[in-house]
Structures are given as structure tokens and as C-alpha cells.
């Protein structure tokens, strides 16, 4: 009985540790995400826990995600490229209380997949892809966004 309680407690505590987890995805999943048709606008932001300019611009994405029903925000972490352990990402999501959907890109050899997001991307982050799923218009930017930039990009694909 005692073992059972301890096990139960352990399971619950582990569960609560990862209250906000992030799904691992492949590049094909992201391509499907921006290739599907829907009435919405998909925003893909590439970031990592080690990237200071990425963390600085995150609130802009959180804001859009919270205020606009017509926009789906996906924050794609590329932390795994450098560190096989995703715990840092989970802890970051908890600490910052991120509400947008977070994905962890599970790919190796970036040279094989960077062009599949956008040919103009050098591979530096932050980088953001905005796709209007209604008309297929897309806009890719490789820089840190400042207040107002994201709205401007979203308007440009309308």
C-alpha cells in the first residue's frame, strides 16, 4: 500500500512538472502545418532557450496568440540541435508561463532542412515564417522583431 502511495505521489509530481510540455515534431510536420488550408494565419517562430534576441521578442508572439482568434502561433524550439535533453525547454515554458503552442524540432543536420522552411534563411535565429492558410501567401523574416513588426508581417500576407 505504502509503495502504491509513493508511486502515485511520484507519478503526480512528475506529471505536474511537465504541466506544459512541448510536442516533438519533424520538418514534415511543420511543412504540413503551413501547407494545410484553413481560414487562419499560421505563425511559425524559430527560437531557442539560449537565444537572447529570441527571448526578447517572445512576448510579441504571446500577445498576438492571446488577442487574435484568426492567428495560430507555434513557437518552434531548435534547442535539440545542440542539446539532446529537452528539459531546458520544458522548464523555460513553465517559468515564462507560455500560452502559445510550443514544439521541439527533432531533426539533425540542419543543412538538409533549413531550405525547406525558406530558401533565404541562413539558419540564424530568431526567424519567423507567416503563412496565410486561406490564400497561401507567405512572408519569411530572419531578424528580431520589434513592437508592431509582427502585425505588419501579418497584414502583408492578407
Amino acid at each position: 500500500m505504502r509503495v502504491l502511495i509513493i508511486t502515485f505521489a511520484l507519478v503526480v509530481s512528475i506529471g505536474s512538472l511537465h504541466a506544459q510540455t512541448a510536442e516533438k515534431v519533424k520538418i514534415e510536420d511543420l511543412q504540413k502545418m503551413v501547407g494545410r488550408s484553413s481560414g487562419k494565419i499560421q505563425v511559425l517562430n524559430f527560437w531557442a532557450t539560449w537565444c537572447a534576441p529570441c527571448i526578447k521578442e517572445l512576448p510579441l508572439f504571446e500577445q498576438i496568440n492571446a488577442s487574435r482568434n484568426d492567428i495560430e502561433v507555434s513557437l518552434v524550439s531548435i534547442d535539440l540541435d545542440l542539446d539532446p535533453n529537452p528539459d531546458k525547454v520544458y522548464r523555460f515554458i513553465d517559468r515564462k508561463k507560455l500560452k502559445s503552442k510550443v514544439y521541439i524540432l527533432d531533426e539533425r543536420d540542419p543543412n538538409t532542412w533549413i531550405d525547406k522552411i525558406d530558401k533565404s534563411w541562413s539558419g540564424a535565429i530568431p526567424a519567423t515564417l507567416v503563412v496565410n492558410l486561406k490564400n497561401g501567401k507567405r512572408k519569411f523574416v530572419e531578424k528580431e522583431l520589434k513592437a508592431g513588426d509582427l502585425e505588419e508581417i501579418i497584414n502583408s500576407v492578407k
Binding site: C51, I78, D81, N111, D115, G123, E142
Partner: peptide, 14 residues
């Protein structure tokens, strides 16, 4: 020519 993930260069006034 290859591409890789990396930190963006910190350009002055950008």
C-alpha cells in the same frame, strides 16, 4: 555551400 543553425551576428543599430 552549407547552412547551419547559429547565432545571428549582433549588428550595430539593427
Amino acid at each position: 555551400q552549407t547552412k547551419a543553425i547559429g547565432c545571428t551576428i549582433k549588428w550595430r543599430n539593427s
